[in-house]
Structure formats: structure tokens, C-alpha cells
Design a protein around this nucleic acid. Structure first.
Length: 840
DNA sequence: GGGGGAAGGATTC
DNA sequence: TCACGGAATCCTTCCCCC
């Protein structure tokens, strides 16, 4: 390593590690001296080694790019030039100079707040952050080369007198709120980018301002009192405000220090900055331009405490952009800078000159971006409605090799993330685990689930499998980590949420992992019958968890979760029994008794009856089953008394969590004494439409109403397509459903006011209004599917990992089907009840 | 070939 | 103090499946 470093030093390749002085307040500093100190301090560290590695990777990319460049023919180049010309003309046509966009950035925000609240710090070099890393520094410290995101030990080497102040986000948030109040007066829809910066579109404000009387543009200098009670006079602070543009200075007059601002955009921004300073004692810088990209660059131009405006004219924009270093443009970091630099591009003008070359060497997206920059184009519409795409939490720590600690931390992170997600009411489908080893190498491992997740258990169920996979991958070497993070992304949109609420299928599948997890040994290969019954994969249980896992019952999760809890608990019981019966296979080599201990945090337990929805506490599974049987019997008995030959009518009631509902539930042809699968079809009537919940079992051919066949294979990921009817028009949708879909049938067909009888299994309309005949047909369909399914081995084990929920059902005869436990009837009932609930 | 997922990387504050 | 963050977004590349 030392040889490599020496070689690099010789070759002068340290620009990669050198100080990034692309920051206000760092002009005119002794770069050479500072870089030498940084280099000496960094040399030999793991971080440094990793940085060198990264730099070499970029160098390889550049070499590859140069090879590509060498192979470009004259003809290709001419063609590219033509395309660039055409695209440039298109972009020019779309140029919009009509908006007045402002980017406001508070100067050294955290440091400025600390200095304001502790004036003794005002003239001293200050760093704000931890003893590991600085978040920012004041302008005194910047003169020494101390800047944001610098490790504190290096900052101390650069500036031994540096004072370190810890972060105090509550204070920054409070100040930020004050500033935002002012922003809102200029643009109620301003876009905050962080605590200290925001974009505003003041086009409307400036327009209205033209007719404002002077009194509305007059503000007063006043004395104030800082947070710690020290008196100050803002007149001192505000002097700088008017220095950058004397010609446009507002007039200060009168004994009270009245300041009158003008009507143009620059005056409006100056007024805004004045008010910010008066209110918070902090200065802000601003950029005014026709688009966001330029406004951002401008706000840095006269930092600190200054502003800059690019007039809304094409030539002014082009003049500004001409000599602008590409590194100043947001979005161009050190990698892009280095790559472009290798092509001889350092300014935006050069970026445009080499447009043809760039179009041949970079992706279309990148090239378009470059071209826009070179023309001084950017977004003129401030998008305030952007939805969050992901949420994550991560933590850096001292080296961690213990599997026990790693799993514990993983669970903690999942818990933290779950809290954050729940605060914003978000549920996502993809769980990503981020790991950084002690060599600073970062790995991410992601898993996209079939249903959305948001609770600690659900997230942890996926995250720990991902973590486990990495631990196993490293085995027998320990996984030495310095950072772990968990991210949830793939949030459902508003529409999807609605559809999810409606979908009983996804309801059942909550917490169940997709096929991809199979390879992660996560126990996706559960018994389909159990899946159908809602015996979903316990989010806290993977194939690793042979020990019983208790379920946490969140009080916040009403309704659905309560119903889920029964199945989860029953599943847990099943796991427990299985575990007791089997020889304990023990945890996998690394993982753990510890992991089990972690997973087995004590939790409150109770069952919720899926029939009467009453909470059943203090019962063991036997007693609870007895209760469910009794409930079922009473439902069956009641349903026998109904006239099964008439069309479903409204008028019956069903009990749900919310109470009794005016809905009908019919159960026909059910043999109470000997429940038989498929021997009963359940009808639900929802006014003008009937809802049938249908399941498509693995290996079953389901037929759509248009006669097309959708093959469903054993691979659950193949079961995405759901065909369903909607107002007579069949649609195909990609859905979470693994079992099938929800069939909505218009009340046309056999009789007025009666729904057409469409078999929910084969999806073919039946030419009868006789429910008994129809039921017989569905029985046959259902039995065929079930027989096909259970004729196969429905539970597969991950080799070497006994999955305790596994129940083998092989080679069952038709007779055996008739003796399938009451659970199946019970499952069907449950489906119906849920359908009612959701539609109620 | 297109779409989607996974993984890694660049960039910003 | 012997040491380099956390959160979010977007992009690219690779791979698999249809």
C-alpha cells in the first residue's frame, strides 16, 4: 500500500483526495499546504485505501471512454453533430424565460445559529458536528481549509484552535421555521430543500408588487434580543445586505430606520433577506434566475450575505453560462467532473462545443442533461408535489463482527424505520439492507415483497434474511461491519392504497414474501392451503426460526391486524408444536441461538375469532378452536334456515369490528357434521354487484371470462396477473394477488336484480339461475383445483432447513378431500367475512 | 426487445 | 479522542423473464 501511495504521490494523483474547495469562503486559501496535511492525516487508513480504489475505478471508466472515443468514425461524428444541432434547436424553442425563480440559502447555517446564540464564538474558527465528523464550519474555519463533511481529526490538524460545537437540531429547526414563514409570504408554495435552503417562484409576487404602495414595501430596522438574552441592534448586521448592489440599494430613512424596498425582483429578494436577518439575526444568500438550475448557481455567486441575478434574456443566460465551471453546476460531482475533464471540458461553453462527442460517449439521459446545462436551461416549474420514494435509517459504529449484535442492530433499525414509516402512514414493498464493511466497501441487498410492509416485524422478516444471506456468504469469515442501514421503498400510491384495501387477496398476503426469497431461505414454500387460509408467513419467522416466535400485537392496528393476528398466532402455535416434535435442528452455524433469543421478545397474546370477531383472551389453542367451532355451527345453522333458491337480498346482518352491518351472508349446502371442501359456495350480495373471492392455486389453470387462459405455475411470482370483470369490461391488471382476483359482476343475466352466476373458479358464466345447480358446478371446479394441487407435494422444504410450518399432503384421494378439516370451511367463511368487512 | 428487480454508484445537503 | 455521516434521489448496468 505504501508503495502505491508513493507512486500516486509521484504521479500527482492526489486530486481525488484533495480538499474540495468548491465552497463559499474557501477562496484564496493555501491549497497546497492544506492538501498536504489532509494527505498525511489520511494516508494508510482503510478509508484512504478505499478512496484510492474508487479513484482507480473511475480511471478505468475514463480509459474505457477514451477507447470508445478513439473508435468514433468521422461519419458517426458528423451524424451526431446533426442530432445535437437539432436537439439544441428543440431545446431553444422550449426555453422559458418567463418565471422568476429564487434559490435562498442560509449562510453556514448551523454554525451561524451557534454563533448567534453564543457571541463569544463569533470571531473564532468553529466546526459544528461530532468528534467524528463535522457537519459544517464557519467562515473563519474555512480559511484553514475546514469544511463540511470533514473528519474532525483532520479539521483539528488543519486548525488546532478549532472549536467543536455539537449539533442541536431542535434549534436549527426552530430557526428554519421562522425563515420559512417569511418564504411563504413571497411564495406560499415554496419548495424547501433542507433546513437552510429553498426554492421560490416569486413571479406572481413581483407582478402584484408592482402596484403596491410604498408602505407595503417598508420595513424597519429594530433592536432585538438574542436567544441568550444579549441585546443587539440589527442595523449593524444589515449593512452588508446593501453592499453588493449599491445602485439598487433601498433607502434607509427616518429616526426609526425605515427601509423602503423597490418593486423589482431583486428588491423583493433583498427585502426577503432583510426580513430574515431582522427576524433571525442570520444572513442568507440568494440567486435569482429564470430557472432552478441557474438560481442555485447564482445563490453561491455572492455568498455570504449576497445575491445575484441573471436577467431574463437569452444572451444574459448564455453569457453567464459561458465561463461557468461545470463543477459549479448542481449534479456534477467529482466523478463527472473528472470524466468530462478527460475530454477537455471544464466550462459549460466547452460542454456545448463537445456536444456531439458527449452524445456518442454518454447515455442519452446524461447527454441531454449536459446539453441543457450548456444552454443554461433548467426546470422552470418548482415541483412541490413530489412524493417520497423511500425512507431509510442507517447507523455507523465501531467494528461489529458479532452476529448476535448484528441481528439486534438490524431489528433496532427496522423498529426505528417502522416508527418513521408509520408516522407518515407509508407502506413499501421493497426492503433494502445496506452494509458497509470495515474496509468501507458498501453493499446493498434488496428484496421486493408481494405485499407492502410497514411494521417492525414485517421489515425485519425481510431484512434479517438479507443480512443472513450476507453473513452466510462471508462464512466462515465473520462479517465485519462499520455501518448498517435499512430502507423501505416502493411505496403504494393513493390509488394503489385504495385497491389494496379492496383486495382481500393482498390482505391475506400481507407479510408474505415473494418468490425471490426462496433463494434466501426464507420459507416461502409454505403450504398453499395455509396461505389460502391466511396462514401467512409470520413476518417474524423465517426458515431459520425453528423456535417458536411470538407475535407482537400492535394496539394501533385495528381491524385487519386483529384478524391477521389469529392466523399468525395459529401459525406460530403450529411452528411451536412442530418444533417440539422435531429434533431441534439448531440455528445455522453462525446464526443463532442469539437470533432466536432476539426474536423471542415477550409479547402479549390473544386470539381474535374470525367468525364473531370477539377477542378471546386466556385461551389455549384447543379452547380457541372449540370456540370457533361453536361460532361456525351457529352461522351454518342460521344459514340453513334461509331460502337458498331466492336471489340474494339485502337485509341480513353481519357482525364486524364496527358492529352489525346490513349485509347478507349466505352459506348453502354445508354439511355441518362433516365439513367438506368445495361443498359450499358462499354468496355475497353488495347491492348491485356480487363479489366472489376466487383463488387460483398453483398448478391450476384459471380461465378468464373471455375464455383466455392464464397459466399459473408453481412459481408464485408467476401469479401476478389477475383477470377481473369491471362493468362488463374485462381488464388485466398486475396485482399483488397470488391467489386470483376479486370478481365483480354486474346484475345482468338470469333474472332482474339478480347477479349473473359466474363461477369464481373457472370464471365462466353459468346458464342457470338455480343456485343449487350453480353450487354443484363450483364444487366440481373447486375440487378439481384442490385435487390437482394437493395431489402434488404442496410443501417443499428448503434443504437442510426444516420449516416447521410444513405439512405434507401427498396423494390424497377424493375421499380424503372430504375429510379435510374444518379449517377449510372456516377459511372460506373467513374470506367472505373479510369481503363483507372491506366493502362495508 | 422491453420491463422490472437488484446492485452499485454519483450526487446533494 | 488514532479517526471519514445520514438521508434521499436518480442513474447505470446487469440479469431474468416474458
Amino acid at each position: 500500500a505504501s508503495f502505491r501511495i508513493e507512486k500516486c504521490e509521484r504521479d500527482g494523483l492526489f486530486s481525488w483526495m484533495a480538499l474540495n474547495d468548491n465552497k463559499a469562503g474557501m477562496e484564496g486559501i493555501n491549497r497546497e499546504k492544506i492538501n498536504k496535511i489532509i494527505l498525511e492525516a489520511s494516508k494508510g487508513s482503510k478509508f484512504y485505501e478505499n478512496e484510492l480504489k474508487k479513484e482507480q475505478q473511475v480511471n478505468q471508466r475514463i480509459e474505457k471512454m477514451m477507447l470508445q472515443k478513439a473508435q468514433i468514425t468521422e461519419q458517426q461524428f458528423r451524424k451526431a453533430e446533426g442530432q445535437v444541432e437539432k436537439l439544441t434547436a428543440d431545446l431553444e424553442r422550449g426555453r422559458d424565460l418567463g418565471r422568476v425563480v429564487v434559490h435562498v440559502d442560509m449562510d453556514a447555517f448551523y454554525a451561524a445559529v451557534e454563533m448567534r446564540d453564543c457571541p463569544e464564538l463569533k470571531d473564532k474558527p468553529l466546526g459544528v458536528g461530532s468528534w467524528r465528523l463535522l457537519s459544517t464550519s464557519n467562515y473563519h474555519a474555512r480559511k484553514f481549509g475546514v469544511r463540511a463533511a470533514m473528519p474532525t481529526f483532520i479539521a483539528k490538524k488543519l486548525c488546532p484552535n478549532l472549536i467543536i460545537v455539537p449539533l442541536n437540531f431542535d434549534k436549527y429547526r426552530a430557526t428554519s421555521a421562522e425563515v420559512r414563514e417569511i418564504f411563504a409570504e413571497y411564495d406560499p408554495n415554496f419548495l424547501p430543500m433542507s433546513l437552510d435552503e429553498a426554492y421560490l417562484d416569486i413571479t406572481d409576487h413581483v407582478m402584484h408588487r408592482q402596484s403596491w404602495p410604498e408602505s407595503m414595501r417598508t420595513y424597519y430596522l429594530h433592536s432585538g434580543c438574542s436567544a441568550d438574552g444579549i441585546r443587539f441592534h440589527n442595523a449593524d448586521l444589515s449593512l452588508d445586505l446593501f453592499e453588493d448592489s449599491p445602485s439598487a440599494s433601498p433607502s434607509v430613512s427616518g429616526p426609526a430606520g425605515a427601509v423602503v424596498f423597490g418593486t423589482c425582483a431583486e428588491e423583493a429578494v433583498r427585502e426577503m433577506r432583510f426580513r430574515i436577518e431582522q427576524k433571525t439575526m442570520l444572513t442568507a444568500s440568494a440567486g435569482i434566475a429564470p430557472n432552478m438550475m441557474l438560481a442555485k448557481v447564482c445563490s453561491d455567486k455572492n455568498k455570504p450575505n449576497g445575491q445575484y441575478r441573471i436577467p431574463a434574456e437569452r444572451q444574459a443566460v448564455m453569457d453567464f453560462v459561458k465561463n461557468l465551471p461545470i463543477r459549479k453546476v448542481p449534479g456534477i460531482g467529482k466523478v463527472t467532473e473528472k470524466m468530462l475533464s478527460a475530454l477537455g471540458i471544464k466550462t459549460c461553453a466547452e460542454l456545448h462545443q463537445k456536444g456531439a462527442l458527449l452524445s456518442l460517449l454518454f447515455s442519452e439521459t446524461s447527454f441531454h442533461h449536459f446539453l441543457q446545462i450548456s444552454l443554461g436551461l433548467g426546470s422552470t416549474h418548482i415541483n412541490r408535489d413530489g412524493e417520497r420514494k423511500s425512507m431509510s435509517t442507517e447507523r455507523t459504529f465501531a467494528e461489529m463482527s458479532s452476529v448476535e449484535e448484528q441481528f439486534r442492530l438490524c431489528r433496532e433499525l427496522c423498529g426505528d424505520l417502522a416508527n418513521d414509516l408509520q408516522k407518515e402512514g407509508l407502506k413499501g414493498r421493497t426492503v433494502t439492507v445496506k452494509l458497509k464493511n470495515v474496509n468501507f466497501e458498501v453493499k446493498t441487498r434488496a428484496l421486493t415483497l408481494s405485499s407492502v410492509v410497514s411494521t417492525e416485524e414485517e421489515i425485519f422478516a425481510a431484512a434479517k434474511d438479507l443480512l443472513k444471506a450476507e453473513i452466510d456468504h462471508m462464512s466462515p469469515q465473520p462479517l465485519k461491519l462499520r455501518l448498517m442501514g435499512v430502507r423501505v421503498s416502493g411505496f403504494v400510491s393513493g390509488d394503489e392504497k385504495k385497491s389494496l384495501q379492496k383486495s382481500i387477496i393482498s390482505f391475506f398476503q400481507s407479510g408474505r414474501l415473494e418468490s425471490g426469497e426462496t433463494s434466501q431461505h426464507s420459507g416461502a414454500e409454505e403450504l398453499p392451503l395455509l396461505q389460502l387460509a391466511g396462514f401467512q408467513k409470520d413476518p417474524g419467522v423465517s426458515s431459520l426460526d425453528v423456535c417458536p416466535v411470538k407475535q407482537e400485537v400492535s394496539k394501533q392496528e385495528a381491524g385487519q391486524s386483529e384478524q391477521q393476528s389469529f392466523f399468525q398466532k395459529a401459525h406460530v402455535r403450529r411452528l411451536r408444536l412442530q418444533a417440539e416434535q422435531q429434533e431441534s435442528p439448531g440455528p445455522s452455524d453462525q446464526a443463532p441461538a442469539v437470533e432466536h433469543a432476539l426474536l423471542n421478545a415477550p409479547r402479549k397474546e390473544y386470539f381474535t375469532c374470525p367468525v364473531c370477531f370477539q377477542k378471546q383472551e386466556g385461551m389455549d389453542l384447543g379452547k380457541f378452536n372449540q370456540h370457533v367451532d361453536e361460532c361456525l355451527t351457529s352461522v351454518y345453522t342460521a344459514s340453513w334456515e334461509q331460502d337458498v333458491s331466492s336471489c340474494p337480498a339485502q337485509g341480513d346482518y353481519i357482525r364486524t369490528e364496527e358492529g352489525l352491518h346490513h349485509r347478507q351472508l349466505q352459506v348453502t349446502n354445508v354439511d355441518v357434521t362433516e365439513p367438506k371442501i368445495g361443498n359450499g359456495i358462499l354468496h355475497t350480495s353488495m347491492g348491485h354487484s356480487s363479489i366472489f373471492a376466487a383463488h387460483t392455486m398453483p398448478g391450476l389453470m384459471s380461465q378468464t371470462s373471455e375464455g383466455c387462459e392464464e397459466k399459473t405455475s408453481r412459481n408464485s411470482s408467476d401469479l401476478h396477473k389477475v383477470h377481473y370483470c369491471d362493468g362488463g369490461h374485462q381488464r388485466t391488471s398486475s396485482s399483488d394477488s397470488k391467489f386470483g382476483g376479486v370478481y365483480s359482476v354486474e346484475p345482468e343475466g338470469p333474472g332482474p336484480g339478480c347477479p349473473a352466476l359466474i363461477c369464481p373458479i373457472c370464471n365462466v358464466q353459468q346458464d342457470t339461475s338455480d343456485l343449487a345447480i350453480f353450487n354443484r358446478h363450483v364444487d366440481i371446479c373447486l375440487n378439481q383445483g384442490v385435487l390437482q394441487e394437493i395431489g402434488q407435494e404442496v410443501v417443499s422444504h428448503t434443504p437442510g432447513i426444516p420449516f416447521s410450518a410444513g405439512v405434507k399432503c401427498q396423494g390424497l384421494s377424493r375421499g380424503a378431500v372430504k375429510r379435510i378439516p374444518s379449517v377449510f370451511i372456516f377459511i372460506l367463511l373467513f374470506i367472505i367475512v373479510i369481503v363483507y368487512q372491506l366493502n362495508a
